[in-house]
Design a protein around this nucleic acid. Structure first.
Lengths: 189, 189
DNA sequence: CGGGGTAGTGACAGTGACTGACGCTACGAA
DNA sequence: TTCGTAGCGTCAGTCACTGTCACTACCCCG
């Protein structure tokens, strides 16, 4: 029924998130998601390659945004600092999506199949960030390490932000990266 | 046909590995695996929960072996050193399984669905190692970090061992952990 | 204003992963 | 020998996912 295509896509995401939350991922069928979104099952698979991916649609945009920011950061800063600034810049997008992000993380945490996909997305994200750092001249292995560490720190901050509604994602990012610096400092040797 | 149960299991693993290598993971059906192993498709799913898991059967045993070794290491050593010794001790198991390990890694590297599962197994392994370190009195966050870093280093060494047949897994482990120490030393700050 | 291209969709059929239920048989213990 | 059980075969069924074709709303160009 929806004409624009983008609208159907959004309704499918919303319906999937609701149903995964209500009955659990395993006990909801793609046909049910499509029905709640007012389309056919076939249309679901036209928008998303599989039943899991419907919850990870924003990742590509986030990845593009982060890597572009990393590439465009002008100053000659240490790798983790570059990542930190990119995360702070991207935080705004997430802040506006909290109503979607919160139940999303809850469902992922409760579903092994979704945690698996989440790990794969994290690995892809780290690879992309490492490549972006490499473009800045950071040596390969150092870039890879910084990208992985940076991403898990961001992920950690996002989780804390969801659990602790009171403070902003920016504050959680500041705190997480401060903790990281402290950890690194005391781990010397 | 096989009577012991364990024999059917091994034949299913062997058949799956061969077929995944010959036609690729996506183009082999569980029925074909079962047929080559001389059993029914239903029996395949009695031994393995899904089509991917047939390649990850040894992980539980390896995990048990590693955590036990970590727990039993008597001296008061730094966390990464404890892990390093556990890996060296477990290396013997893998050395004897090279004929299985080599094509296995090739298939995993070539198949996104299997890489996803591999990442999940790595995360589970790191969690188990972190818990084992925690039992030794290592502080939680430090244990988690050491476990993750240790596991990726082990994984890295195992990959190098597969690619470079000439040298033993022990040698690759020595080199990987030496590299890790050098990296950590130069990263201070 | 009319006609053709196209993007998004519905309908339908089909494959293959995975599950539940039931019955059979080989084998070890009593 | 008999009985319990573990491993297996068989069958039916659900559901994720795919290929194909036809339809329709919209958009652009004439």
């Amino acid at each position: 029924m929806p004409r624009s295509g983008e609208e159907a896509r959004r309704r499918l995401q919303q319906a999937a998130l609701e149903l995964y939350g209500e009955r659990g991922f395993d006990r909801t069928t793609t046909a049910e998601i499509a029905a709640r979104a007012g389309v056919t099952e076939r249309t679901f698979f036209r928008h998303f390659p599989d039943k899991r991916e419907v919850l990870f649609d924003g990742e590509a945009a986030l990845r593009a945004d982060l890597t572009r920011t990393v590439a465009d950061t002008p100053e000659d800063l240490p790798p983790l600092e570059v990542l930190f600034r990119a995360f702070r810049k991207a935080a705004g997008i997430l802040e506006g999506n909290r109503a979607f992000a919160e139940p999303r993380l809850a469902v992922i945490a409760a579903t092994p199949a979704l945690r698996e996909r989440d790990l794969a997305k994290a690995a892809a994200m780290a690879d992309a960030l490492a490549a972006a750092l490499g473009e800045r001249g950071v040596e390969d292995r150092l870039a890879a390490l910084a990208a992985h560490v940076g991403w898990v720190t961001f992920h950690h901050a996002a989780g804390a932000w969801i659990r602790e509604s009171a403070r902003s994602l920016d504050e959680h990012l500041d705190e997480a990266f401060a903790d990281l610096r402290a950890l690194s400092a005391e781990a010397g040797g």
